[in-house]
Design a protein around this nucleic acid. Structure first.
Length: 671
RNA sequence: GCCUCCUUAGCUCAGUCGGCAGAGCGCUUCCAUGGUAAGGAAGAGGUCGUGGGUUCGAUUCCCACAGGAGGCUCCA
């Protein structure tokens, strides 16, 4: 039999007998690779291990622990889950089931219950499904690739309406391939034919699928766990019926699975809602209503420190401070367009004697009123109005999430009014300012989205205006060297925007800052300035939130630092512990000295043993714990136990105070 | 808003297959005054989220509502 030549990723070539499969190639390279091989990539397309190679193919073997290998494992696992569900729940049908980050899901519709309502899964069902999945695994059912004509596929999947919609191209399924009248499928022949198989002509499970898959259900699939059941709208549309989605996670080894579960536990430990309670920072009293928080003294001082810093930076950055009320007559929001476009997100109005008043969902209309309070000249532009403005938005109850999604929050909001000529430079310096402030809070890993014009018919503004604005945003991103993705058509109807995202200590990405052009509102509200030519012009208006919502930013910081705020932000910066009661007087002196340097200091008296007081201080994540005893009283020193560091005895009080005061000053000074 | 689940002391959580409710931490008082991650004792503290229903009896079962978690949709 003639040999064929295969090219490997390192460029080397290999001769193998004609008819060699991807798996065979792996085996010819090495026994270890043969064992680890999940699929292959042949000329850029992922293929099963039993895919037959042709002369001249370029082939890469994909192993279980690689990203593509894991993706395949998760994809195959979700097929097994679907099989288990369809077998355990007669009459059930299935929609789509792709792998996702760390796992997979599949959407199902269960037959209606006795009350006629759509059937739902309960958590115990997950155990049954998992048990059945393990049985399927032990059967080592092969994944059998096939290609059916659309007509045949329609008969096979006649009982599965979602699959029919996919076959007919009405619904998107990222995992299927239905081109040119042909439909690709994967079948798992069962050890024993089902009593009443729901697929015409097959004894067990088959699914529309482009593959590839692991060779059989016994290979690579053992390390999974079904996590939870959730609702999900068919085709992602709120108007469609809600399906039952089961989420699972799957890994290449037991150790990887356990590590993943451990990571989830660790992430839960730094959940801002838990830390906010533990550290007594803030709470969400039920009596207040959903999505509304009260700040306790410890959270309050952190927030004040953040806000003071923000104010100072804005003052130095050439911003003007404005203050505006929380309520406004509905006529203002009609003029601004909010009642037309965003009414659903607003709290309902209260009736007053001269009309309906609404809590403000945004600060811009009011800032516009400040702009419009007298005639403006081009000589005073750019004008930068800044306000820590509290807004209220009626978020749907199911979307609320601690501080991250809340109904009443404060934006560090700015609106900038400038001439078209000024806009380019203004955007550029604005982005630099934004990044500088974010860095001061301890973030240094940024990226951005540049959102461009949506479908033209839905937007305002001119072609030239959009093009110039988008170009200014792009130039600013490039000048800052900020990596960005273009979100084509992702802009608002009124203009393009940049969203700045930061990566936190455990690698999660948070969208914080936003810089948005607005071609709409200034004109709508009739804003103008007198230009050099003596004529009236509409200013360019730029919306900008830096930290975004103070509440949300606080939540992000809390999780980023896992509650251990840097010294300048920490609610208690130094705790003083007298060894015995008779050191209390000196401890008070130490407190006084440090407070005199502007530090936040407290003291815990000796009614508990020292070890326990230290333990509690560590639990509160206080940056510095000072122990003072006989020797310290004598020599005016302190024993310093810093967070995350070594104990240092006999430090002169003065030197310690200076050091910490310097540390705080360094963190808060402009970079 | 929709789907699943949850709600017991200030916090974290046991528990009751329907029969007067428990632990640890925290809090109060007393003893103890101990140089770097839990000293001892006693005590207070709960209409078992709220409102209805079933029942001789409901914290437990059913319904509604509120709040919360995870998703979906949404996020100006």
């Amino acid at each position: 039999m003639a040999d064929i030549t295969i090219t490997l990723p390192d460029g080397s070539q290999r001769s193998v007998p004609a008819g060699t499969t991807v798996g065979g190639l792996a085996a010819s390279i090495g026994r270890g690779l043969a064992k680890a091989a999940v699929i292959g990539v042949v000329d850029g397309t992922e293929r099963d291990l039993n895919w037959e190679l042709r002369d001249g193919d370029e082939v890469e073997i994909v192993t279980a622990t690689s990203e593509r290998g894991l993706y395949t494992i998760r994809h195959s696992t979700t097929h097994v889950m679907a099989q288990a569900v369809l077998e355990l729940f007669p009459g059930a049908t299935f929609a789509i089931g792709p792998p996702v980050e760390d796992g997979f899901y599949y959407d199902f519709a269960l037959p209606p219950g006795p009350d006629g309502a759509p059937g739902t899964f309960v958590p115990e069902d997950l155990d049954r499904i998992e048990d059945r999945m393990r049985e399927i695994l032990s059967e080592a059912q092969p994944f059998v690739r096939d290609e059916l004509s659309s007509d045949v596929a329609r008969e096979v999947f006649a009982k599965h309406r979602y699959k029919l919609e996919i076959i007919d191209g009405q619904a998107d399924d990222p995992m299927s391939a239905t081109a040119t009248g042909l439909v690709r499928t994967y079948e798992n022949p069962p050890a024993k034919a089902w009593a009443d198989p729901p697929f015409e002509g097959y004894p067990g499970f088959i699914d529309l699928c482009r593959g590839p898959h692991v060779p059989d259900t016994k290979s690579f699939l053992g390390h999974f766990k079904l996590m939870r059941v959730a609702g999900a709208y068919w085709r992602g549309d709120e108007k469609n019926e809600m399906l039952q989605r089961i989420y699972g996670t799957a890994w290449a080894s037991k150790a990887d699975l356990e590590e993943h579960l451990h990571r989830l536990e660790e992430a839960a430990k730094r959940d801002h809602r838990r830390l906010a309670t533990e550290l007594d920072l803030l709470s969400f009293p039920e009596q207040l209503g959903g999505g509304l928080a009260v700040w306790h003294p410890k959270g309050g001082i952190v927030r004040k420190t953040m806000e003071d810093y923000s104010r100072r930076r804005h003052l130095e950055g050439g911003y003007d401070f404005v203050y505006t009320p929380n309520l406004a007559n509905g006529k203002l929001f009609e003029a601004s367009g909010h009642l037309g476009f965003y009414k659903d997100g607003m709290y309902p109005p209260m009736e007053m004697d001269n009309g309906e008043y609404y809590p403000k969902p945004m600060n811009c209309p009011m800032h516009n009123l400040v702009f419009d309070s007298r005639q403006r000249s081009y000589r005073e532009l750019p004008l930068r109005f800044f306000e820590l403005g509290t807004v209220y938005r009626y978020e749907k109850s199911g979307t609320l999430h601690g501080l991250m999604r809340i109904r009443g929050f404060t934006q560090d909001d700015s609106h900038i009014y400038c001439t078209p000529e000024q806009a380019h430079d203004e955007i550029r310096s604005l982005l630099g300012f934004v990044l500088s402030v974010l860095r001061a809070f301890g973030f240094d890993d940024f990226d951005a989205n540049l959102s461009t014009r949506p479908a033209k018919a839905e937007t305002v503004g001119t072609d030239e205006g959009w093009a110039a604005a988008t170009e200014s945003l792009r130039a600013a991103l490039e000048a800052e060297g900020l990596p960005y993705e273009v979100d084509e058509g992702g802009g608002a109807f009124y203009g393009p925007k940049i969203d700045v995202k930061v990566r936190d200590a455990i690698g999660r990405s948070w969208q914080l800052s936003t810089i948005q052009y607005d071609f709409n509102m200034a004109e709508r509200m009739g804003l103008s300035y007198i230009g050099e030519d003596g004529g009236r012009h509409t200013p360019v208006m730029i919306h900008r939130a830096l930290l975004g919502s103070i509440e949300r930013f606080f939540g992000v910081l809390l999780e980023h630092y896992a509650g251990a705020f840097p010294t300048w932000l920490a609610p208690v910066q130094v705790r003083v512990l007298p060894v015995r009661d008779d050191h209390a007087a000196y401890a008070a002196e130490v407190v006084g000295e440090l407070e005199g340097r502007g530090l936040r200091v407290d003291v815990v008296d000796a009614s508990e043993k020292l070890g326990n007081r230290i333990r509690k201080a560590k639990g509160e994540k206080i940056p510095y714990v000072l122990v003072v005893g006989d020797a310290d009283v004598e020599a005016r020193t302190v024993g310093v136990n810093p967070r995350g560091g070594e104990v240092d005895r006999d430090v002169p009080l003065d030197a310690f105070g200076q050091r910490v005061a310097d540390e705080v000053l360094a963190q808060t000074s402009v970079s």
